[in-house]
Simulated scan of single mutants.
Amino acid sequence: MLNMFSLRGLPWVSSSDGQEKVELTATELESLRSELADLEDREAHLKAQLEHVDEILRSARLSGYLYIRTRWKPLPGEPPPIDDTDVDDWLPRFIVLHGSCIFFYLLSTDLSPQDSTVLSDVVEVASLPSITRENGEMQYCFYILTRHGLRIECSSISKIQVYSWLSALQTDCKLDYEPSTPNGSSENNCQICTWVKKTEIR
């Protein structure tokens, strides 16, 4: 067991029979016990993280890393928001669609989410035009709008991943499909796919 620790720092002495042994003071022994306890705690934490990831992969409807940013829909009478499309404030998050909620984790190994959104609060889901990040990387985008006006914009380099999220959210949130074409776009351009909860739109 002692070989697992920093043996160079331990006081080795030779006994009368030629065997080497370690002599520790009470303080050194307590420090060694504390180090053992820390290792056991870390092992337990890592085990809990692995079990959590395994549970997500087995039971979640959908999960994966996406870049996200949040915006608020202006209230009636408020001026339209400033166009900040080019602002690169996307943050990577591990998103989990499980049960009746969308959970937002900083990392897939985190035991608790940073935030969550109830699916019953989602009134609109739609694709967005693709963007080019500052590093030149192309990303496909969509957004989730809640009844409270919170707009969660999500992006990924994978078009298939974005389609999977749109399809899953459309089904789980029970939204109706409404094809629409962006302003200034011709019918030959890609449509923006929109799903809305019509009973919630004022």
Rank of each mutant, 00 (worst) to 15 (best):
98 H>D: 10
142 F>R: 00
88 D>S: 08
72 W>A: 10
125 V>D: 05
149 G>K: 02
87 V>E: 15
67 Y>V: 00
191 Q>W: 13
160 I>S: 11
143 Y>A: 09
192 I>Q: 13
154 C>E: 00
145 L>F: 01
193 C>F: 06
97 L>H: 11
131 I>D: 12
159 K>E: 10
158 S>I: 00
145 L>S: 08
100 S>I: 06
85 T>S: 14
91 L>F: 13
166 L>W: 10
120 S>V: 12
100 S>E: 02
128 L>R: 09
112 S>A: 11
116 S>W: 15
150 L>E: 05
92 P>K: 09
80 P>Q: 10
82 I>R: 15
137 E>P: 02
65 Y>P: 02
118 V>I: 07
90 W>E: 06
76 P>D: 09
168 A>K: 08
75 L>V: 08
184 G>R: 07
182 P>R: 12
113 P>D: 08
108 S>Q: 15
120 S>L: 08
92 P>E: 03
147 R>W: 01
109 T>H: 15
178 E>I: 11
81 P>K: 15
131 I>H: 05
89 D>H: 02
88 D>I: 05
188 N>K: 14
94 F>G: 00
166 L>T: 02
153 E>S: 10
66 L>N: 05
145 L>T: 04
103 F>D: 02
97 L>T: 07
159 K>A: 11
159 K>H: 12
139 Q>K: 12
186 S>A: 03
145 L>N: 01
72 W>I: 12
181 T>Y: 15
153 E>C: 12
69 R>N: 09
167 S>C: 07
115 D>C: 12
159 K>R: 13
144 I>F: 05
169 L>R: 07
184 G>W: 13
93 R>F: 00
107 L>V: 00
161 Q>F: 05
141 C>V: 02
74 P>K: 09
133 R>P: 07
85 T>W: 14
121 D>L: 05
126 A>Y: 15
128 L>F: 04
192 I>K: 15
112 S>H: 10
149 G>H: 03
165 W>V: 00
136 G>K: 01
190 C>R: 08
130 S>E: 03
135 N>R: 04
138 M>C: 13
69 R>H: 11
184 G>A: 13
192 I>E: 11
121 D>R: 13
94 F>A: 01
117 T>K: 08
122 V>L: 01
160 I>N: 09
66 L>D: 00
125 V>A: 05
175 L>C: 07
159 K>M: 04
118 V>Q: 11
196 V>H: 02
130 S>N: 04
97 L>N: 12
69 R>Y: 02
150 L>R: 09
88 D>G: 04
178 E>R: 09
139 Q>R: 11
189 N>T: 14
115 D>Y: 13
89 D>E: 11
94 F>D: 00
152 I>V: 15
128 L>T: 01
97 L>R: 14
108 S>K: 14
159 K>F: 08
97 L>C: 13
148 H>W: 03
71 R>T: 06
158 S>E: 01
68 I>G: 05
195 W>I: 03
97 L>K: 10
145 L>A: 10
123 V>D: 03
88 D>N: 10
82 I>M: 12
160 I>C: 06
185 S>I: 02
128 L>E: 07
181 T>P: 02
122 V>G: 03
113 P>E: 05
156 S>N: 06
